[in-house]
Every structure is written in C-alpha cells, then in structure tokens.
Amino acid sequence: MITLTEKAAQHVRNFLTKRGKGIGLRFAVRTSGCSGMAYKLEFVDEANPEDLVFESHGVKVLVDPKSMPYIDGTELDFAREGLNEGFRFNNPNIKDQCGCGESFTV
C-alpha cells in the first residue's frame, strides 16, 4: 500500500495538468546510490500490465512488483525546505539512509 499526503497529491495533479498528458505517478526503487537503494519518481504515460496501482486523493500511483517489498507502506509527502521543495518519503522499511535522502538501505 502506497499513499500520498493531500499536499503531495495536489502537487502531482498540478504537474500532470500542466504537463498535458500522463495517467499518474510511478514510484520505484533501483539499486544504486550511496546506501544501496534509490527512489525513482516518474510520470507515467503507459502502465505496464504487471504494475500495482494505488489511488490516493485522486492520484494513481503505479509500482512495479519488484519494488513493492522495499517501499510497501510508504507515504509520499511534498515538503518545502527554505527555497527548495520536492517529494519526501516516509518509508517504514528502511534501516538506514544516506544523508541525501535519495538513497537508503532496507
């Protein structure tokens, strides 16, 4: 189960509208980065048949089955830090993460 906070969902909807196409957000992990795993966020134009689909505040989040064990239960939030803004992950699975927040260990 993947969820978005209301604020994150609102931003994703906004981006999708401005972009003019796309059916949702792909949330995935891949092996790279300083702590082993890294998050990946992409727009989705076409879903893959094996994708798991979650809907949260009207936004579709697509996850491939391989990524799921690492991120199950994660809540995506949209945060602002000073002038910077972007997505942040509250992932219950992680043991350790790199200071950069993009990369983590399960």
Binding site: V12, F15, L25, R26, S32, G33, C34, A38, Y39, K40, L41, E42, F43, V44, D45, E46, A79, E81, N84, E85, G86, F87, R88, F89, C98, G99, C100, G101, E102, S103
Partner: peptide, 16 residues
C-alpha cells in the same frame, strides 16, 4: 535531506 522531483518516464537520473 534532498527532496525528489518527478522525472519524465525513463529519464530518472541516479542519485546525486
């Protein structure tokens, strides 16, 4: 902690 942006399909870059 860095905040992530959404990339175009297939264009997500590696961390850092």
């Amino acid at each position: 902690m860095a905040l992530l942006q959404i990339s175009e399909p297939g264009e997500a870059t590696a961390p850092h």
